[in-house]
Design a protein around this nucleic acid. Sequence first.
DNA 1: TGTTATTTGCAACTTTGTTGCAAAAGGCGT
DNA 2: ACGCCTTTTGCAACAAAGTTGCAAATAACA
Lengths: 143, 143
Amino acid sequence: MSADNINMLLKTYNLRLTECRKDVIGVFMEQHHAVSQPDLELRLNHYDRVTLYRTLTTFLNKGIIHKVLDDTGLTKYALCSGHCTEHHHADEHVHFKCIKCENTICIDAVSVPAITLPDGFTYLDANLLVRGICKICQAKNNH
Amino acid sequence: MSADNINMLLKTYNLRLTECRKDVIGVFMEQHHAVSQPDLELRLNHYDRVTLYRTLTTFLNKGIIHKVLDDTGLTKYALCSGHCTEHHHADEHVHFKCIKCENTICIDAVSVPAITLPDGFTYLDANLLVRGICKICQAKNNH
DNA sequence: TGTTATTTGCAACTTTGTTGCAAAAGGCGT
DNA sequence: ACGCCTTTTGCAACAAAGTTGCAAATAACA
Ligand SMILES: [Mn+2]
Ligand SMILES: [Mn+2]
Ligand SMILES: [Zn+2]
Ligand SMILES: [Zn+2]
């Protein structure tokens, strides 16, 4: 089932169906948290580092994935849900980083609240990172 | 006037008054936008890269400065305004990155709105980065 | 001014980001 | 199924940033 979805996704964005691209999308789909380039390098270690880098860049440009900021400076990526394009991402939701498991997830259910900027400032988009303890780690603590 | 402030600040945090630390604080004070390590290296190029790195780490641990996330993955830093400590930063305000001049500033006047997370998630803190066009660049456009 | 703990500079190494180029592979018409 | 053409990949090479150990320099304090 998933393989067809992946091929369709790539075709939608006019991208060639290469093994690497299919595998990278596969990782994003089976993972429910944001993925960094080093994460990808570990899981897909038969591909060259540069190829993975370029695959991420391509997906980012097409609007297939979006950046997820991290408090460590390491950039993570996640699949876009809405209809995002290269120039505008239409899925402004909260990102949550757990300080226990270090995973960062997209919380699509919670969108970024409207921000009123001081006079003279123009709003383009926003990236909100909330840190705390995730549901899974919380449950573990209450054994 | 400023030199006394700087010495006082360092003493408050039980830090030795070294040239490097005083100069770094000086840069933060005279700059009204967030500063990255490479920024510091350019301005204070008579200090070793590692010394600046360690100075930032020290200030970060003491709660003198806070991290300002950036959409490029480059970490920037800014002086803390409130009473921040190593473990908790009490100055949760909006950060604004201008896509023209690339400067990132702390907008202390706008605090991060309260976020309601899904059940099971615990909130610790948040970092909100708004992108857009800053007041200065806006004014330049309207010549 | 001398003692001691802290800080600095340097060397070294790791990780990540980035580009050019030739070989390999995908898409497509035949 | 084949060949052509364009895109993608792997490799080499380099740039930039992060990180640590250690000996020399320096701040704090008596
Ligand atoms: Mn997301
Ligand atoms: Mn700030
Ligand atoms: Zn967790
Ligand atoms: Zn600007």
